[in-house]
Design a protein around this nucleic acid. Structure first.
Lengths: 251, 251
DNA sequence: TCGTTCGCATTGACTAGACAATGCGCCGTG
DNA sequence: CACGGCGCATTGTCTAGTCAATGCGAACGA
């Protein structure tokens, strides 16, 4: 019965009767309209909130959530421009133009979490350097990025300084003799931890992508693990693939 | 105050006091333990459910969710084996071995949704063929995959038959003269629609990845749009990247 | 005109209680 | 031993109400 209420509202959001940014009926309205108790109405609304369709803005009411995603291209670390015109068009079309970026960098020496240590081939107790970055756009946090490096290869290098590295941390690694030639990306999709939700100012119903990139040198040593947390409602993750000849694939 | 309850339980889940599969205290237990009303306890538990940490199994109680993710490799369509040993290790390690796969294929001719039509460069009203697939593992639905093709190039081809194509639909396209040489992947992260949640048997707190892959021929024509819905708690999405020389990247 | 304060609509948090739905296990029967 | 049915613990749904928190706007005062 509470589902009827949320279904009705969901329908109106889907078909545009309630466009992005519009206000939903108030709890009192729905109580009167359907003749039910307040708990039931709140249950219906909380379902929509947990689906990420609706945001409560106390005490103004409930509003349809707006989203303006930004393109996240893991490959852009090493290739600034997309392969071809139609892909470039996609990127620019979805880009967040005219918004003010800001970032905050912090460097620390830590004993990395087990999953990070494993990817870096570190024994328990071995240390790593981590560059933590929070990126903002228009005053809103957009994503957090923690890059881990084995301490023994970046000690005393530029990477330990909490400043922006214009030519890129990867280039610094290469200068130190650890040029990366391969990388493995893993993407996990889940709800944020309360800590992540707080740091990224995420409401309920906002899942995140958890992106782990491990970079390898030519001799197969992992020298960098970059962990990025991307709020789902603010990002599109994009990859391009290109191949030459014998397509040995299956469906 | 309800947050104290959910924080305490979340802590016990995180530190292993409550391992995967264990039963949480019942609502009645928590009411007695904290001396609060049932609504408060249910609010605390529903927070955990919406984070995807906990599953209610009526009428047995609440249990810590278990997850066994399967590796999804978009690149595997065209390259069966990973580049290198350490990546191969990762894939096999996370593979769902010894589980029974099953799939159901269905073919239809439709007027595609606007976002699909746009990616296929179809005008409004133009038709496309769609191969819809649902994949199961151990009797549980794992993901759904809908592949769209411009109708004029696949009409009367093998692609229109609702059977498994051993050598792959991409190979059939190539035989028809539309060999793909590039692809663009887009990944969106969001909560499932009620329909998706039903088809994939998703509980609340299970976000999905929405993967759209557009394949292009050498002359830049899009000939295939594959849409895959991947439940976040059952998948890891994995990409490999390799590059040769001048790393022209920035941080 | 500008600034401050107060009121108010609205959601947030919580309580106490009622009845429904659902599996699981126990018990009794054949 | 096998099967059927009942009971019961537990969650699902819903009501009716109270008090708190919050931000906006209107009214008021300098």
């Amino acid at each position: 019965m509470y589902q009827q209420i949320s279904d009705g509202l969901r329908q109106k959001i889907a078909d545009g009767t309630l466009p992005a940014g519009a206000q939903l009926p108030t709890e009192a309205d729905l109580i009167a309209q359907f003749g039910v108790g307040r708990g039931t109405v709140r249950q219906a609304l909380s379902a929509l909130v947990n689906e990420g369709l609706v945001v409560p803005m106390r005490p103004r009411g409930y509003f349809v959530k707006e989203r303006q995603p930004m393109v996240f291209r893991p490959q852009a670390e090493f290739r600034k421009r997309p392969y071809s015109a139609e892909m470039d068009a996609f990127v620019t079309e979805h880009s967040a133009e005219g918004r003010k970026p800001r970032q905050l960098i912090e460097v620390a020496i830590v004993e990395p979490a087990p999953d990070i240590a494993k990817r870096l081939h570190l024994e328990a107790g071995e240390l790593a350097a981590v560059r933590r970055r929070i990126r903002w756009l228009d005053g809103e946090p957009f994503n957090v990025n923690d890059s881990y490096f084995p301490l023994d290869i970046v000690r005393d290098s530029e990477i330990m300084r909490p400043e922006d590295i214009t030519r890129g941390a990867n280039e610094v690694l290469a200068e130190l003799g650890y040029r990366q030639v391969r990388a493995l990306d893993e993407l996990y999709v889940r709800m944020p931890t309360p800590d992540e939700a707080h740091r990224l100012e995420l409401g309920p119903g906002s899942p995140v992508a958890y992106h782990v990139c491990t970079g390898f040198t030519a001799d197969g040593r992992p020298v960098r693990v970059a962990v990025t947390v991307l709020p789902g409602d603010r990002h599109v993750i994009s990859y391009e693939r290109q191949w030459e000849q014998p397509q040995d694939g299956a469906e």
